[in-house]
Nucleic acid binder design. Structure first.
Lengths: 150, 150
DNA sequence: GTCGCTGCAAAGCTTTTGCATTAGA
DNA sequence: TCTAATGCAAAAGCTTTGCAGCGAC
């Protein structure tokens, strides 16, 4: 469980904003789905299972707020909707995504061999890098096998 | 100019599809803006400057077709609209993007130190990688300097 | 009582689709 | 001629916004 923030760690961030029941529900959804890449719709549905009184507008407003507080971050895998993921709080937080072009499964890669590359690029381009996103596209073993045997 | 496809190279791909004036206009727009990351709206505007008779539907349909023919590819930098870029045709075609969080400039990085990482990850996860996208987020030197001096 | 948060519904964007018309080979 | 491509406008997502009401402090 190392590298994953807890509810109480995050709660401390809410000094100038209220941690309302709706926001709490959204937060819990992320904490209980740490390895998912949730769409706004999924966040709404899962939040409603906890707290029947929440609508799309509130979900989107909570997502905006949480992104600003660096609790989550927004991603895009090219399916027309934004997806959101809990931020890891440790230094070794980087991970990448394998996106299967056939079954659309998204697999996480824990590796972070990118730090050296990042340092090089930052120096060369005189650019302060604060974050990166890396997606690999291709075919997972299931889809590849299926293609080969048919 | 190495590594950039020419009009005649691409024209050869149109064996089963018609290279209509509209598609030709869109294609030329990409060839004349090789280092841009154009939105559909920009493609429409630039195409209209060449050929007054083209609408949004045709632009989107051309973009879909060109993506399928691997002439361009779709990207997303998180501003709510898809952006399109001409594909390079050589092997050494990979490049990455530095996205400035302050002025939103997008800088290209030609480097491709990712191949070894890609090989490792493909083996480890039993995944056929066909492509990758890498974005670095941070602050370009202009914005950084501006922040430091204010 | 005040100020921020919420829900609803409407509006705003980008992108897709249906259909009648046009045009290329 | 015959099929594919186009334009227009409508529709279909996803996301944002306006506003009145509600609730926490």
């Amino acid at each position: 469980m190392k590298g994953k923030p807890t509810f109480h760690q995050i709660k401390g961030l809410f000094t100038e904003y209220k941690l309302t029941p709706q926001r709490k529900a959204v937060l819990e959804v992320f904490l209980e789905n740490k390895d998912e890449h949730l769409s706004a719709e999924e966040v709404l549905r899962l939040s409603q299972e906890k707290n029947s009184d929440i609508g799309f507008a509130t979900v989107y407003r909570a997502l905006d707020l949480f992104e600003e507080l660096d609790i989550i971050h927004k991603m895009n895998f090219g399916d027309g909707k934004s997806r959101y993921e809990l931020n890891q709080m440790e230094r070794e937080h980087h991970h990448h995504h394998l996106v299967c072009l056939s079954c659309h499964e998204i697999i996480e890669v824990k590796d972070d061999l990118l730090s050296r590359l990042e340092t090089n690029i930052a120096q060369e381009h005189n650019f302060d890098i604060t974050d990166h996103r890396l997606q690999f596209y291709g075919y997972c073993y299931k889809c590849r096998d299926h293609k080969e045997t048919t």
